[in-house]
Design a protein around this nucleic acid. Sequence first.
DNA 1: TCATACTTGATCGAATTAGTCAGGTATGCT
DNA 2: AGCATACCTGACTAATTCGATCAAGTATGA
Lengths: 163, 163
Amino acid sequence: MRITSLVECSTRIMVRLASLQPGATLSAEKLSDLENVSRDYVDQILQRLRKGGLVASTRGAQGGYSLAKASSAISIGELVRAVEGQVFEEVCERYSSGEHECRHMSNCGIRPVWLRLGEMIEGFLDKVTLDQLTVPEPRAFAATMAFIKDFEKEGRIQHDKRR
Amino acid sequence: MRITSLVECSTRIMVRLASLQPGATLSAEKLSDLENVSRDYVDQILQRLRKGGLVASTRGAQGGYSLAKASSAISIGELVRAVEGQVFEEVCERYSSGEHECRHMSNCGIRPVWLRLGEMIEGFLDKVTLDQLTVPEPRAFAATMAFIKDFEKEGRIQHDKRR
DNA sequence: TCATACTTGATCGAATTAGTCAGGTATGCT
DNA sequence: AGCATACCTGACTAATTCGATCAAGTATGA
Ligand code: FES
Ligand code: FES
C-alpha cells in the first residue's frame, strides 16, 4: 500500500499554490520548474485539480493558477479524490465478479476490516488540510484530534449483514 | 490505495486455518477448493506464510497446514508483511533518488502526513487479530480501541527535522 | 496578431501485480 | 521398497496499472 507518484506530485503542487500571496498566481511552467516535474505532467495534474474545483485558472499571457478556496478548506482527501478518483478502493467490490470472487459477502468476518481500514484512511486524509502542510511554522494537527475523537466514539467495528 | 488480491486471498486462507479444530490440518488442495483459488497460487501464498512463521506444515500423505500459533496472536499486519514484505511504503523513500525526487526532505511539511498515515494503517492492522475475523459470533474489535487510545495520547503530528 | 499559457484526450513504455509452470523433496502407507 | 500424496522452490509470463508524453488544439493579454 502506498502513495502514488501522482498524489505526491499533486500535493507538492498544491502546497506551492497554498504558499502564494492572495491574488497571486503561478503558471504551469513555473510550477514545473519549481517542483521538477515535466510540464506535460503538471498540466495534466492541474487540469484534474481544476475539474475537482480545487484550483482556479487565469488564461492568457501572465495567466496562471491559484487555489479555488482557502487552503484551510482543502483537504488532502479531496486532493486525492480529484486526481485519482478515490482514496481507497474496497477489495470486496473489486473482486466481486469473475472466477476468484470475494466469496463470503454475507455475514463475512473479513469484510468489516477492509471497510474500517478504508474509513480510517479516508477519515484521516479528509481531516488534514493544506494549510497544515505549509512550512515554516507548521501547525499542530488539531483536526486529527477531532477525527480520532469521532473514531473513538463509534468505538468498534460492526460486522455487516450484506449491506 | 487498495488491498491487493494477494492479501485478500491470504487472509481468506488464514481465516480458514483459524477455524480449524486444534491439531487438525488442511491440505493446500482443500484450501484451493474451499477458497476457489488456483492450487499453484495457494502453494505460493502458504509458502510465504510459512517463511513468515504464521503457518506450520506437515509433509507427506495426509499432511497439511495449520496455524503456527494462536489465532489471537496473529495480526493482519503480520500477515501482510509475510506475503507482501511491508504494509505501507513510504513515498519520500520511494522517490528519493533520480530525476523526480521528493524534494524537500528536511523540515518538510508534507512528509509527516505520509508518515503519520503509514503509522496509522500499520498500527490498525497490527491490532486486528485473526480470531476477530472468525464467523459466526464475531467479536467486537476491542483491540482497535486500545490502538486509538494510544494514538490519541501522542496527539499530534510532529514535523520532523530530517530524521 | 503574436506570444503565452491553459485545455483536451489519446497514446505508450515501464513497473507492478497476479497467477502459472516445471521440477523438485519429504513423508506416510501398503 | 515403491508409490501416492502433498509440500517446496524459484523462475517465468500475461494482464493490469502507473507514470509520463505527445499532438493538437482554444482563450487571453500585450
Ligand atoms: S472476503 Fe470479501 S466478502 Fe468476505
Ligand atoms: S514531499 Fe517528500 S520530503 Fe517533502
